[in-house]
């Protein structure tokens, strides 16, 4: 078989294949639910109810989407420039560690200043963590996929060391967790009484800023140019190495904000289970958003809804909540294929 580019794909074509990808995901999830002894309609229905069915559920979904918007943006920015950052998990923890260091009493300032300082310091930590693999890529040609992946394992062990050593909470009854943040270091709730913190608003703002950078600035243009064709970009006089390094700083900083928002907003202290893989799920979010910064918001809400809904479904019906992870991985693979098929026609030889 052979792929033939389509000059002007019709609207029908551009809608049909992504729709088919979603249908395929739902069909596969239904089959898996049946294998586990669940009624597919009940399982899918319960996922929807669990994600959106009540005010509590909806807020839980928004809370879960918050770190995913940040990591999704981090991945989208990097992947657009073909910088394969698979290390958002480590960068997230880098941001979280900075918050746990600065926010537990080391700095005494009014809340707005302290939060700003912590956010900027967290971004710098995450940016630095991705700068190392990016430099190894640009200077020595070391593949960043493997180095960023390995950094995840190294950094998580480092966090584990911190939580059992220097950052350990003396009042923590022996649990490996950091001390609680001082009140000035906590992101306040958006509305009193509702369990949704300013991290969510910050995530939305970040998405808009990234979209502006991407669509309206020279850097955004250069990042896309590098991602589409390195040789052509170099030929056009774009400083490819600099652009890759800038992309790395931006991407690492965004991922670190996920850690900032989780610790300062939701949890109030650092533990080793802060992130159930938000860094990796960010890849799915970014791909489902077709790497578009504003699309990331929608994709993160969708992904968060599936996770939150599956947790609730698992409690109610007993089908394992790993169904959510399978659905997302399936959706990812089906969607990349669907996007390809909107642009290419399959011809037999």
């Amino acid at each position: 078989m052979r792929l033939e580019p389509i000059a002007n794909p019709s609207l029908a074509r551009r809608l049909t294949f992504p729709a088919l990808a979603i249908v395929a995901t739902i069909v596969i999830a239904s089959l898996l639910a049946m294998i586990a002894g669940g009624n597919p309609m009940a399982v899918l229905g319960q996922i929807l109810i669990g994600a959106f069915g009540s005010k509590f559920a909806l807020l839980e979904t928004l809370n879960r989407a918050t770190p995913l918007i940040f990591t999704g943006l981090a991945i989208a920015v990097a992947f657009r420039a073909k910088l394969w950052n698979i290390g958002a998990e480590a960068q997230l923890y880098a941001g979280a560690v900075v918050v746990a260091v600065l926010g537990t009493g080391a700095l005494q300032m009014p809340a707005p200043i302290l939060l700003t300082v912590m956010a900027l310091a967290a971004m710098m930590a995450g940016a630095f963590l991705l700068l190392v693999p990016a430099l190894l890529k640009t200077r020595l040609g070391v593949d960043e996929v493997v180095t960023t992946l390995l950094f995840n394992f190294i950094f998580l062990l480092f966090v584990s060391y911190l939580l059992e050593g220097p950052l350990k909470d003396p009042m923590g009854m022996g649990w490996p967790k950091s001390a609680r943040l001082i009140p000035e270091a906590r992101l306040p709730r958006i509305v009193d009484g509702l369990r949704l913190h300013w991290g969510f608003a910050l995530a939305l703002i970040a998405a808009v800023i990234v979209w502006v950078i991407d669509a309206k600035t020279t850097l955004g243009f250069e990042m896309r140019a590098v991602g589409q064709n390195v040789e052509a970009a170099r030929f056009a006089g774009i400083p490819v190495t600099k652009v890759i390094l800038k992309t790395a700083l931006l991407s690492g900083g965004l991922a670190a904000l996920a850690g900032f928002s989780e610790v300062a907003g939701l949890k109030g202290s650092l533990t080793l289970d802060l992130s159930p893989g938000f860094g990796y799920t960010g890849i799915v979010v970014a791909m489902l958003a077709l790497l578009h910064p504003l699309g990331v918001i929608v994709a993160a809400l969708f992904v968060a809804a599936i996770f939150v809904g599956a947790d609730s479904m698992s409690r109610a019906i007993g089908v394992p909540s790993y169904l959510a992870d399978i659905m997302l991985a399936t959706a990812l693979l089906c969607m990349v294929l669907a996007i390809l098929l909107t642009k290419f026609r399959v011809r037999r030889d």
Binding site: A36, W84, V284, Y322, I326, L332, V336
Partner: peptide, 28 residues
């Protein structure tokens, strides 16, 4: 191969799929 999709994305996606499918099967 025939569809020529990004090997990075397909590979990471397959790792997510295989891992979650394994854990799911284990729990079932």
């Amino acid at each position: 191969v025939p569809f020529g999709l990004s090997q990075h994305v397909v590979g990471i996606g397959l790792t997510l799929l295989a891992t979650s499918a394994t854990f799911y099967t284990y729990r079932v």
